[in-house]
């Protein structure tokens, strides 16, 4: 698989480490009320769709950036790649 890195252009997927569903970006507040249940939902259950899946890839053998890759799990076709930083900021995260 080739991942179209937003900064570096096409990169071999072997340079990356797969880090799972992009929902992991939305880490719950550990100090909030009901944090235990929120962390259970965060860590264990997954949508695991057969089709388009947003997932985290870490460019460990490259520029060490984190990407959010939208990929079809039925065909392995990659339809969108964005920096995880931009993705998180668009969801209201400050950093």
């Amino acid at each position: 698989m080739l991942i179209e890195h937003p900064l570096l252009g096409p990169c071999d997927a072997q340079e990356f480490v797969y880090k799972g569903d992009a929902c992991l970006i939305d880490r719950p507040d550990g100090m909030a009320e009901g944090a235990e249940a929120a962390f259970y939902e965060h860590v264990y259950p997954r949508d695991n769709p057969a089709g388009l899946h947003r997932e985290l890839w870490f460019h460990e053998q490259g520029d060490r950036s984190w990407l959010v890759v939208t990929r079809n799990t039925r065909t392995h076709e990659i339809v969108k790649v964005e920096l995880a930083r931009d993705f998180a900021r668009a969801r209201g995260r400050g950093r």
Binding site: G20, D21, P45, R46, D47, N48, A50
Partner: peptide, 14 residues
């Protein structure tokens, strides 16, 4: 995950 989603369940499975 695909089948159990039809029953509204989310599983700890990928």
């Amino acid at each position: 995950s695909h089948v159990m989603a039809m029953a509204g369940l989310r599983l700890p499975i990928e």
